[in-house]
């Protein structure tokens, strides 16, 4: 037995020596793990525990089994929020992916450097702004008395009820989302388009391919991996729209755009119904996990495994 254990013990000794040698290095990551333990994993676990409890004002919380889940799943507002989140989130993601791909290709065709950087800057800026800013801007611009309606009135057209009719709820959310986010996707698409090997164009040109053909057969395939990456990244956020909807909902449009996070916020923070809010959060978490896995499968997305 000792003959088997000896190299084992030696290896362990080497490991310990190595770890002692890297003492300072381990210390450098300690704050990160303390933070994640307290602010990420603890709330995650706490949420799951609380979703099975009724939290009372006085005394310890009571275990109530799956009552909260039953309540949430039978709550028509939760179901409505779920439908909105899935529909609006998915449509929004695809619009943003498509619009910014077209714009990136389009911007890439501009030869005038000033015009190019101007349009890139202008499309990118809203990405830096928070939803409180962008939401506030569009609440003003699309108001009954705002720029768009004044323009329509000046043209002799009727003013549109952007915030006072439920029919306009989703279109406004989808449009402003693209307005704010497209610039970010454009930057990433352009980065992949710019890094295309120029000899590919050269070869295509010699073969007599027009520029449109080059876009179709060189640029699109080369940008495709970026589309996939952004799809996978975006999929994790589909059910997590909060800032935009909290900012931009109005009584008339609220039911057509309220999202799951808004539901969780209103249940948990506004109404202080911790149990139902955490149950809803747990359901959404599982749903997000499913969506992430499925989208990764569909996109055949392999994460950089070099870590």
């Amino acid at each position: 037995m000792s003959t088997v254990a000896r190299p084992d013990r030696a290896a362990r000794k080497r490991l310990f020596r190595k770890m002692r040698q890297y003492r300072a290095i381990y210390l450098m990551i300690v704050p990160v793990f303390v933070y994640f333990a307290v602010f990420t994993f603890y709330p995650l676990g706490l949420g799951v525990v609380q979703s099975f409890q009724r939290v009372r004002l006085i005394g310890a919380p009571v275990y109530i089994g799956t009552d909260n889940y039953a309540f949430v799943l039978n709550d028509p507002i939760f179901i409505l929020s779920m439908r909105n989140s899935i529909v609006v989130g998915t449509v929004s993601l695809f619009i943003n992916l498509a619009v910014s791909l077209v714009l990136a290709i389009s911007i890439n065709e501009i030869r005038n450097r000033f015009a190019k950087s101007l349009i890139q800057t202008v499309t990118f800026l809203p990405y830096l702004f928070s939803w409180t800013v962008v939401g506030g801007m569009w609440l003003q611009i699309l108001a009954h008395n705002g720029m768009v309606n004044n323009l329509l009135a000046a043209l002799g057209l009727e003013r549109l009820p952007f915030f006072t009719s439920s029919a306009w709820g989703r279109p406004v959310i989808l449009f402003t989302n693209a307005w704010k986010q497209a610039g970010y996707f454009i930057v990433l698409y352009l980065a992949s388009i710019v890094s295309i090997d120029p000899t590919l164009y050269e070869a295509a040109r010699i073969d007599g391919a027009s520029r449109m053909k080059q876009i179709r057969y060189i640029i699109l395939p080369q940008a495709w991996p970026t589309v996939k990456t952004l799809l996978v990244l975006g999929a994790t956020g589909v059910l997590r729209n909060f800032d935009q909807v909290l900012m931009m909902n109005r009584p008339a449009t609220k039911d057509s755009i309220r999202t799951l996070l808004l539901y969780i916020y209103e249940e948990g923070i506004t109404k202080l119904k911790i149990g139902t809010a955490t149950a809803a959060a747990t359901i959404v978490m599982l749903l997000t996990l499913v969506i992430t896995v499925v989208v990764r499968r569909i996109a055949r997305y392999e994460q950089d495994a070099s870590y």
């Binding site: 890297y22 994640f36 602010f39 709330p43 249940e267 923070i269 809010a277 955490t278 870590y307």
Partner: peptide, 28 residues
């Protein structure tokens, strides 16, 4: 030693949608 485990620990937190836990963050 254990670098892979440390990296996994960091990466996993990117998969956890932190904003979904907002109610527990409030309690915390």
């Amino acid at each position: 030693p254990f670098r892979k485990a440390i990296a996994t620990g960091v990466l996993i937190t990117m998969m956890i949608p932190g904003d979904l836990t907002l109610v527990s963050i409030f309690s915390l």
